[in-house]
Amino acid sequence: MNSHATDRRAHSALSGLGGGLLLLCFWAAAAPAATPGDISRAYKETCDRLVCQCGCNEQLSVCAMQNCSSATPMRAEIRERLQKGDPVDQIVDSFVARYGKKVLSAPTTTGFDLSAWIMPFVILCLGLVVVVWVAVRMARPAAEAVQPELPPVDPRVEEELKEFEKEI
């Protein structure tokens, strides 16, 4: 009956924790609705996709240098063109035309660059095949050798086991 009480207590602790997390997530889910304006979101997206050319090698949204020779005019241009109504892709493309592919913050999905995206998952699949193969191969011989004759159990084992339990 003691364990029943503890069960209940643990249950309520569990549901308390779960409820807390639920609430947290509920709040988080409701949050983005408050984000105003499409321009600022598009602006953030564009800045994320481009790399500052001052040598810091960081995204436009990250480079924190004041009056950066590269980030400041790039940002100004992006803001201006977004206000004119240019789509994000077009703005990004025009920067690529000007600076080359290195202005993009991630590899493209064409040609050799595609391998950047695919390779980790290729390795994952290969690894899966290997692991499954190893697991199955390692598991098989045990199934064949069903229960070899076991030596008679030594009474000392039980004794020592009790002692072992006491010690730890």
Binding site: E58, G100, K102, S105, A106, P107
Partner: peptide, 9 residues
């Protein structure tokens, strides 16, 4: 060609 592999990747 020089490219950048950044956070989006």
């Amino acid at each position: 060609t020089k490219i950048t592999v950044g956070p989006p990747f």
